[in-house]
Design a protein around this nucleic acid. Structure first.
Lengths: 304, 304
DNA sequence: TGAAACCAATAGATTTTATCTATCATAAAA
DNA sequence: TTTTATGATAGATAAAATCTATTGGTTTCA
């Protein structure tokens, strides 16, 4: 059986005329006749009772028509569905992102994306890097915004921008009067960090050549919180911390009694990249995403 | 698009493996691959995201699968329906019959037919000959039991049996003592007839060489009723009538104070035939019907 | 590290299937 | 009787699906 044959059936049933049905199906009359005959032989039933003057659908034919129509309906639905998704800028796009990035990046790009690609359904989610990699593998997300290079060879990455780390210290801090902050300054400080599930902690330690000795052991239990909490801790005088540049644009930092300071350490940054499966088919959607991200970044970061 | 392709889709979606899917579909792996690729190109969407190690259905693919399954379901339903009707002894068979025959013939054949062909759905209906011919033309019925030869060249007929006419007269009637009844006896009688919409009336008049002069004009308004009514009229002494032989087997006549008498007139009979469209495909069902009718007739009629 | 196994894609030949044009057979209409 | 209309048939042609063999890229295992 064949969807084409079913269309022939319906055309004959509706026109009650092989010639007109053939015309409607854009085939010759013998084609239509022979196909229907073959189908009838395959099914072992007579669908049309025909004379030279009339074509009438048999009771079996009637019963068959019902299903034939539904079958074709569903096939049409497939084409409609395909058309709906044909535009790579349409349909769902699941983006995962690390928690030290999303709250500060997503607000920058959500509106522009929505405006430019209204049919794109963006679904964002926050997880740490390892979880995002797993979810990427299992197709739960289509792409991830990470701050570390890809390890899985099934993934590819596109570098988006370099995001410098800034020092955050209490308003009333000795460094407040110092114009430039160098690595030497950092070494003397008590640095507060997030849980090491976050890639940020490790990166800050590495980039600034810090070791565990700078970390106050008593603060250990505090390391599971988010960046906002970290700032509160700084504000409360527990120490200082380094945050990615996008963080300091948020209004949430003003009025919390802390100061964000640019560092004079060129290598003190992290590189944010879009990571996706090499096999992911909607690369155009990703490219659009990349473009919008790059176009909406503040000048505190270095677009790549 | 093609139902075969949809089956390929579903096989791949369920096995997540082109090779296994191909095996399930009884084709080679390249066949399946290329067909799916072609379908994807036609639809303009990627249905499977595939690497050398994994095959995953895309969101579009998921949406398409839903419809693909339903489409195939309906196609399967067509095959099931066909199988159900494949047996010519299964499915509905609409039989029309004239009112002077059905009440006496149908009871004879209904049970035997039901027993022998339990899947045959017999739908009987009563109409006069002209109506039956119309309904036959319009496919409302598949065959008709008539007492007159076919006129429409689109129809064919098979003669079933000759049914003699019997005389019905009141118990207390001069003829009661006469052994043999001839045409001369009839000429002296007052014959009651049905409406001339019934072919029986005309036939009785022709066969017995009667003319309108035998008919009592005052009885005219009574001629629209059925045979049972006619017997009641005879019983009430309004006259006599001729009835087809099958009639007298019914128990409804006993106790109504009338006598049914065989005629010694060889040509006093009507021929009952099965009439059907030449194009009607289920001739086997008709042949079965004919066989059962012939096998269940009383010996008051002459099987042909 | 190197060989084997696995898997989907590709190439090219072959077979199957659908389609076309031309014609026939039949019945209705003129 | 001729013409017209209609579906069926025949044979040639075109389109498609399918096959085998191979490739290119992994992953697995010794």
């Amino acid at each position: 059986m064949n969807l084409r044959d079913l269309k022939y059936l319906i055309a004959v049933a509706e026109t009650r005329h092989f010639g007109k049905a053939a015309e409607r199906c854009f085939v010759s009359q013998p084609t239509l006749s022979s196909q229907i005959k073959k189908l009838e032989e395959q099914l072992g039933v007579v669908i049309f009772e025909r004379t030279n003057r009339s074509v009438v659908v048999t009771p079996v034919g009637m019963a068959i028509m019902v299903h034939a129509r539904k079958s074709i309906e569903q096939a049409d639905a497939i084409e409609q569905t395909a058309r709906l998704y044909q535009d790579p800028m349409a349909g769902p796009l699941h983006i995962g992102s690390i928690p030290t990035l999303s709250p500060y990046l997503i607000p920058l790009i959500f509106q522009p994306l929505k405006k430019r690609y209204p049919r794109l359904q963006l679904i964002f989610s926050d997880q740490v890097t390892s979880t995002l990699e797993q979810r990427l593998s299992s197709h739960e997300i289509d792409a991830a915004l990470l701050a570390t290079p890809v390890r899985d060879p099934a993934f590819e990455e596109i570098k988006l921008f370099d995001e410098p780390f800034w020092l955050v210290h209490p308003h009333s801090h000795p460094l407040y009067t110092k114009e430039e902050i160098t690595r030497n300054d950092l070494k003397k400080l008590e640095i507060l960090l997030l849980s090491d599930a976050h890639c940020l902690s490790k990166q800050v330690m590495e980039v600034c050549h810090l070791t565990d000795r700078n970390l106050d052991g008593s603060m250990e239990e505090l390391r599971a919180f988010g960046l906002e909490t970290l700032i509160q801790l700084v504000s409360a005088g527990f120490g200082c911390t380094l945050v990615p540049a996008l963080t300091i644009n948020g209004s949430w930092m003003t009025g919390s009694g802390v100061v964000a300071r640019k560092l004079e350490i060129p290598e003190a940054f992290r590189c944010i990249r879009l990571v996706y499966r090499s096999s992911f088919p909607r690369t155009q959607a990703l490219e659009a995403l990349i473009q919008v991200i790059r176009a909406n970044l503040p000048n505190t970061v270095q677009v790549l």
